[in-house]
Design a protein around this nucleic acid. Structure first.
Length: 343
DNA sequence: CACACGTGGCC
DNA sequence: TGGCCAAGTGT
């Protein structure tokens, strides 16, 4: 067996993680859900979401027939909401085209929405014992350090090289242990900052350890300055209910409920008139709220308006009145939840 | 290839 | 405290 596989498989027995909720099953459905949730998301954040999600949607059939809004509610706060949309799409495909059974080949898995090369490899390995590689942030870091790769791992050329290495290092057996060990090593020993090289099973042949490059490798992603965007929103309240609007745009927070946006606050009266009829209101509070994303900052300018009565009882499509007490359970993005809480 | 896509934790 | 980063995918 290859050096890396041999060493980390032994290491995993004593020092790996064995009690994560999705390790207690062979069910491809649960493994799939966990892998999607874990995309760009840390284990500690995922655990409570995973448990709650599986409880609500225990099988792919239950999920496939679920209401999208309920799925979004269970994803609310986890981020990258497109994943929730993909999960529902894929569930329907599995039920309709695969008789509710997951395909066991990487090539078929990869064609499903939200499942890329790495997630396909993980599902294949963990659920079916397929000898397939993964390439997450942990694996990238371990291989970059071990082989002394100085380029940033996001570069196309570097990625290709890393995938080749991942293939070359695959063991012919114990694929589940190997795959988990690779990630556990990256998470607990070969960490981004202050790696614990003295306890690393790969130390003897690690290029970065030999040359003292662990502070330089992995190379940092080239950084860019991020813009600040502005948006004007309305917090409309009547009878202790808050008005929400479904986001349909293929952009941030798609599929979630948020506050209605308005071009100019000077249009408020007309906006209210158009949607709700002649509506007397009090402007209670104005302010700003800053939400920071990885690629931009969003300054949310809000107007808090309380209607003294609702003339028009109809609620247009994509609008929803929610009781204040139920806001925390709704499919609302975290910064908006905070804004609502703080006002 | 570069970018959009969320959030929380770390120092 | 602000910048960095995490079990990536789709366009």
């Amino acid at each position: 067996m290859q050096y890396i596989a041999e060493k980390i498989i032994v290491w995993h027995k004593s020092s790996g993680r064995h009690d994560l909720p999705w390790q207690k099953t062979q069910d491809p459905y649960r493994i799939w859900i966990s892998e999607i949730m874990l995309q760009q998301t840390q284990v500690s954040s995922v655990i409570p979401y995973f448990k709650k999600f599986i409880k609500e949607f225990p099988t792919v059939d239950k999920l496939a027939s679920a209401d999208e809004d309920l799925v979004m509610r269970h994803w609310s706060g986890l981020g990258y909401y497109r994943r929730a949309k993909f999960i529902l799409q894929t569930a329907k495909i599995i039920v309709d085209s695969y008789q509710s059974k997951f395909p066991i080949n990487v090539d078929e898995l990869i064609n499903l929405p939200g499942i890329g090369k790495s997630t396909a490899g993980a599902i294949c390995a963990f659920a079916f014992g397929g000898i397939e590689p993964i390439m997450d942030a942990n694996v990238k870091r371990v291989f970059c350090r071990f082989y002394g790769i100085r380029e940033w791992s996001g570069k196309a050329k570097t990625q290709k090289y890393l995938w080749n290495l991942a293939h070359e290092n695959l063991p012919s057996k114990d694929i589940k242990i190997y795959t988990q060990a690779l990630m556990d090593l990256g998470a607990t020993i070969c960490k981004g900052r202050q790696p614990d090289c003295l306890n690393c099973p790969l130390q003897r042949k690690c290029e970065s350890f030999k040359l003292n490059l662990c502070q330089v490798i992995p190379a940092k992603k080239p950084k860019k300055t991020i813009p600040t965007k502005q948006v004007n929103v309305l917090m409309v309240e009547v009878n202790n209910q808050i008005l929400l609007k479904k986001r349909r745009e293929a952009s941030v927070w798609e599929g979630l409920w948020s506050l209605p946006e308005i071009q100019e606050f000077s249009y408020i009266e007309k906006w209210l008139q158009d949607l709700w009829g002649a509506t007397p209101f009090n402007l209670v509070k104005q302010g700003q709220h800053l939400a920071i994303f990885s690629h931009y900052k969003l300054q949310i300018n809000f107007n808090y308006i309380v209607l003294t009565e609702r003339i028009n009882k109809n609620t247009p499509r994509d609008f929803l009145w929610v009781n204040r007490a139920e806001l925390s359970n709704a499919g609302i993005p975290t910064p908006v939840k905070r804004l609502l809480r703080d006002i």
